[in-house]
């Protein structure tokens, strides 16, 4: 399916090359922005510059992977309106398995590279050693974050079964969550902390593993093992959204012929 997607893109050779060029320009500008941001950036609430670069890298690489695998779900209302979803439902395949590979976009690799570079540099400057625990802590937040982002895409898609028009509510959480995740949870107001710890657990899966990784004292009165609860929290979140999606499919009304 991914192969087909690339092949399809390749068939517009010229626009394909231009598009690739565009990706690199945009990425370059992004990097410049980070640089200038860091120029004037002091440490925040006991978190140093490179620790914040790590948060940035973690957030954008996880988002890139989530977008590569599920971004097409953002276009669900369009997929329903143009009748494509009818076509999906008459094939012996799960709709997600059919749709998700279409998310594949080469420009997302630029964001991924950017994220990986950012976290790589921060590991280097912070002298993080490659111990089992540290790797586990990193993977805990990385994969949990991917699951949560994909769940948010899915929630957005499921909502279109009712509204037909795209709902921006979950988008706000996805991209708001990415912005939020660039800084440690401790700088935010109480209600924001509660929201991102328990309702949209982006904060949960980033803050605890990262705080343990960087040996921070302030865990908002949570026990240390919370870090390793992250994957379970993420999977539970996905489970709830999955049920919502299933109910949505049953409720699906299609469009006029």
């Amino acid at each position: 399916m991914i192969e087909a997607k690339i092949k399809g893109k390749m068939s517009y050779q010229k626009s394909y090359i231009l598009e690739l060029l565009g990706y690199f320009v945009v990425t370059g500008i992004d990097f410049a922005a980070i640089y200038f941001l860091f120029e004037s950036f002091p440490a925040v609430k006991g978190w140093s510059l490179w620790e914040i670069v790590y948060l940035y890298g973690l957030g954008s690489s996880a988002l890139a992977i989530a977008q590569l695998s599920g971004e097409v779900l953002e276009d669900m209302s369009l997929i329903i309106r143009n009748g494509e979803f009818d076509q999906v439902l008459i094939k012996p395949i799960s709709p997600l398995l059919f749709l998700m590979p279409q998310s594949f976009r080469l420009d997302r690799f630029a964001r991924l590279a950017q994220g990986v570079l950012a976290s790589g540099f921060s590991f280097y400057y912070l002298n993080i050693i490659f111990s089992w625990t540290n790797v586990a802590l990193f993977l805990c937040s990385f994969f949990s974050l991917i699951i949560i982002f994909i769940s948010l895409f899915l929630a957005n898609a499921a909502t279109s079964f009712w509204t037909i028009q795209s709902s921006e509510v979950f988008n706000a959480f996805t991209y708001g969550g990415v912005e939020m995740s660039k800084f440690p949870l401790t700088i935010y107001k109480r209600w924001m902390q509660v929201l991102f710890l328990f309702f949209i657990p982006i904060g949960f899966v980033i803050f605890f593993p990262t705080s343990i990784l960087f040996e921070k004292e302030n865990l908002l009165n949570f026990p240390k093992f919370s870090a390793f609860l992250s994957p379970f929290i993420a999977i539970a979140f996905f489970g709830v959204i999955w049920v919502y999606w299933r109910v949505g499919i049953r409720h699906y009304q299609s469009t006029g012929s």
């Binding site: 087909a4 399809g8 068939s11 009748g83």
Partner: peptide, 25 residues
Amino acid sequence: KLNSKNIGVVFGQRTQLWWDLPPID
């Protein structure tokens, strides 16, 4: 899914082919 293996469907104004690909693919 089981039912879909047994049926073929053509919606006149929709396509089940990939727009950018030749039919053979």
